[in-house]
Design a protein around this nucleic acid. Structure first.
Lengths: 209, 209
DNA sequence: GTCCCGGTCAACCGAAAGATTGATGTCTGG
DNA sequence: CCAGACATCAATCTTTCGGTTGACCGGGAC
């Protein structure tokens, strides 16, 4: 029984690479390709496939994790294997919560890729070693989730506002703003406002247009 | 006469994709692959090739623009075509100054890719339309155009580094870093490092993952 | 040759931000 | 009910940052 694959990536070169690596593999058959997340959702519903290889970044439009959630929500849905370049906590958690069966990094060797697809097709979860390690770390350390108020402050910091401006905009004293920032720094493991913004941007905690 | 290609990218899947797209094209022959920038420099010197397809991001180790500079410095060097995901001013300028013959984005369709390789092999420069547009804009409004050095500093600021850390990384004094920042603030019309990063991110002057 | 620009650096000062400690009130969950 | 998390604020102190002024040098333009 061959495993039917759907490739979802906005880069034609990457799709060609995945096809080259997987289509020649015995037992694999690439039956469809999607250049956008929206198209991937359509194809996953219209085409009988076993495993979807899903990128997370799609330029404009829907995000890969949103598409993953839509695909896995249906009954009899295919397994979704997330294949991306980044391994941030936010991305991994979003993908897992969206129902992804696995999370692979694009620098994985072809053999690892094929093995992961087989694992996912068999209904088991496939995490890249580096990704699994990150999840372990996260479990070991107590929650680093920012509160709503802290995210609010952090967003304004990212917009370039000073503590003074933030305090006025949120009707707070500067002392309170500083207090929030201290907590933010501790949770993100940084020690300055700009590095906090950098860290938060990397973990997709705030918007950075 | 066939065009001999060297592929330099840390992702096996991307290399396979480029090979699939280009190796089948008439007149093209992929003669070598490199998974690191260092290896690309070695191979470019040891192997007779006409065009190098160079990624910019290589995880740890040498950066693609550094490798480009090393490769193009030799007499009789091959043309280097930069092929990356990002199109920020900082990356583009670094690549062009390093001697790259072209700058392509990874979401380019295969035909465009092949055309760019032929253009580069012929000794002409090949810029993706989006990249060319950015360079035009930059020429049109020289008033607020940041210099290469300033972009370099700004990128590090966006990464969360302090003036102290930036000065060490660039082998400068803190006074010089501050001097650059003053100019950056003036050109962007802001008055703090975080707001400069916000403004630069909005204008796509720097890379903000 | 001279001028201007880009890049480099120095010294200084006030303002902002970071670190520390400590306190109050609210709300939720066991 | 009480522990704990969250949000709020104050005072103090040190470090960093921002603003200013001025300077030197190299290269390209005129």
């Amino acid at each position: 029984m061959t495993i039917r694959l759907l490739l979802a990536d906005d880069h034609p070169v990457v799709r060609a690479g995945l096809r080259a690596v997987l289509d020649t593999e015995p037992g694999f058959a690439v039956v469809a390709e999607a250049a956008t997340a929206e198209r991937a959702v359509e194809l996953a519903a219209a085409t009988p496939v076993d495993v979807v290889l899903m990128d997370l970044q799609f330029g404009p439009g829907m995000h890969g994790s949103a598409a993953t959630a839509l695909i896995t929500a249906r009954p009899g849905a295919p397994r979704v294997l997330v294949l991306t370049t980044y391994d941030t906590d936010a991305d991994i958690l979003a993908a897992v919560e969206a129902g992804a069966s696995g999370y692979l990094l694009k620098d994985a060797p072809p053999e690892e890729l094929a093995a992961a697809v087989r694992t996912a097709a068999a209904g088991q979860s496939a995490l890249a070693p580096a990704v699994a390690l990150r999840l372990m770390d996260r479990m070991r350390t107590p929650a680093e989730a920012l509160t709503k108020r802290e995210l609010e402050v952090l967003q304004l910091v990212a917009d370039g506002l000073s503590n003074q401006q933030i305090s006025k905009k949120l009707f707070l004293s500067q002392a309170t703003v500083k207090s929030h920032l201290v907590h933010i720094y501790a949770k993100l493991g940084v020690d300055s406002r700009t590095s906090a913004v950098a860290a938060a941007g990397g973990r997709r905690l705030i918007r950075t247009p």
